[in-house]
Amino acid sequence: MTTEAPSRDTSGTLPFLTAARGVFDLSFEAMLWSRRSLFLALLLCLPIALGVLFHAAQAVELQTRITGRDLYQLLVVLFYVRNALPLVALFYATSLIADEVEGRTLTFLLTRPVSRASVLTGKYAAFLATALTLTLPAVVVGGVLLIAPEGAGALGGSLPALLRDMAAMGLTLAAYGAAFTLLGVLLRRPVIPGLVFLFVWEFLANLPGYLPRFTLSVYARGLLPYRSIPGLGELFLLDLEPWTCAATLAAVSAAGLLLAIGIFSSREYSMSQ
């Protein structure tokens, strides 16, 4: 037996921003204190452990093939931007609505005097806040750990780069987050298709030709000037202007979120009892 989610009474709905703020508060709290966040926090702090290991290796005079700054740049471009942040976005953003459906709690949200647009916007903002809360401290600590030992002025000189990296990560999270939010409202079980998108479709970014332009990865990587994959593969890498990349990611974020809001607002959800 199934029951239809009650139709909304929009006559007395709260203002958009007030409602979104309320949803944000609830969702931020739920996201931050979850096992998912614990797992992702450990993943995102991995570079700090690698930084400590790097210095330990130097302290015992083990031969390393890269410098601390190289390691920081590799971690930013390959670990965070290419792998960890899209995964963080996948696990949080696909579950914004899917978790409510799975836990059969969506009814409670939809019967409140709030618009569906404010629900999804509040949840998306909570995802961004949670992801940035977990990511940015790890990036900054990792940067300080790997760059500061180069000497006086080294970290100070890298301040613009640190700020740029943080902005690039924010945009990466926003774009992947919007794409996965869309996937989350479209599909009942979005994680597997999301993983396929990340590790099969996004692989196109490494191929020659025009195809990489249809991936998010190539634009996220284009925000950063760090050297790309060493080897023959670098011959095929598409180099795009950073502002083009930033504009594309911002457009994808806005379009993905608006589409997701449109679908979520018009869809009828059936809750099995």
């Binding site: 931020f28 809360t133 401290p137 600590v141 100070g156 301040l159 640190l162």
Partner: peptide, 24 residues
């Protein structure tokens, strides 16, 4: 508190970098 602590850590790191920059 967690969000403020995370923000504080970011500001501390960037502050150290800014001081290092100001010294030169």
């Amino acid at each position: 508190i967690v969000a403020a602590a995370a923000g504080g850590l970011v500001i501390l790191g960037l502050g150290i970098a800014a001081v290092d920059r100001l010294l030169n």
